Amino acid sequence: MDGLVFADLNWAIVFLTQTSIGILGNSFLFCLYNFSLLTARGLRLIDVILIQLFLANNLVLFSKGIPQTIAAFGLKDFLEETGCKIVFYLHRVARGVTLSTTCLLSGFQAMTICPTISGYMESKIKSLKCLAFCCFLCWILNLLINIHNIMNVSGPNNSRNMSIHNMYRYCSAPVAKGFTFTLLAMLYVLTDWTFLGLMAWASGSMVLLLHRHRQRVQHLHSQSLSPRTSHEARAECTVLILVSMFVSFYFLAASLSLWKTQALSPSPRLMSISVLLSLGFPTFSPFVFLFSDTHIYQFCFVIWARKTNISTFVSGV
């Protein structure tokens, strides 16, 4: 018993650390890009997509990371049935929005650098209204797809004399069977693989375009490349890293979830590792931008310079 408690405490610390780091990283970039968007200083249309991505990441961490941490610390039955419904529904919606937004991000980046897109289409793609509408569709689509979770999820003590699949160690839901299971499985597989397929197409297009661009300029000295070309290549590489990270965490988490559902009594360690993998992308994706997006450094430098000038002026007065 002591070993089990010690193991749960270790997992609780891991969940707490991962969730805290992810929330801090996403919140910082969410506020930074929002401030940039509202003040229109260094405004980029891609920032609209990134703001939604950071928001969805935080929702995933709040709806799954925090409850899992609380359960690992030993607090049981802290959510009533209504709380379980809201938390699980928000998690599923946020997870879907993260997937669709990452797909939108990679598609937007691929289309903006594609030389075959006409001027009319380019103006539509680079329209703020078009991007806002696509972001809105991401939320509406996932809100509708996951509506059944509100009816199926129940509290930990409400088994309703049915086969129960435990979630997070504190919520439960009847295991779908027959036609319902087939319908839900097809719905999730169709939506997930559609977005993953579009993501793969966009990433492949970017890799091909980067390769062709490198072949065209390989005879030139690196110093002759314009800053614009350098920034565009850096942005494309950032999106490619982000997509690769998402796909890796997605397939690892999906494989482990499938293994977990097939097991009659999955071990607590297996369930904890599954949670870690499902929270991997929301936790680490903001740091890809922190270390690669020069726009962040430029924006922070401007704020720091203005603060320094104001302090110097006040001290001089």
Rank of each mutant, 00 (worst) to 15 (best):
S255W: 11
M199E: 13
C130L: 14
I49F: 02
L190G: 02
F73A: 06
S257W: 09
L24M: 08
L209Q: 09
L37H: 12
L29Y: 08
K64Q: 15
L29G: 07
M167Q: 09
L258V: 07
A110P: 08
P67K: 02
V5M: 01
M151H: 12
K126I: 02
V189G: 06
K124A: 03
S278R: 01
D2C: 02
G178M: 09
T102W: 02
M186W: 06
L220P: 10
F181R: 13
V5H: 02
S205H: 06
M167G: 01
R169E: 04
W201C: 15
L99T: 11
L290G: 12
A12Y: 03
S272G: 07
T19F: 12
D8K: 11
R228C: 04
L141A: 08
G178S: 08
A185G: 05
G65Y: 04
I46Y: 10
L225G: 06
I310F: 13
F195I: 03
K126C: 11
R269P: 08
H213W: 10
T116A: 05
K129M: 08
L141N: 08
T194E: 00
I46L: 08
L143G: 01
Q262E: 12
R212M: 00
F291V: 14
S20V: 14
S159R: 10
A200N: 07
H295M: 02
T82R: 05
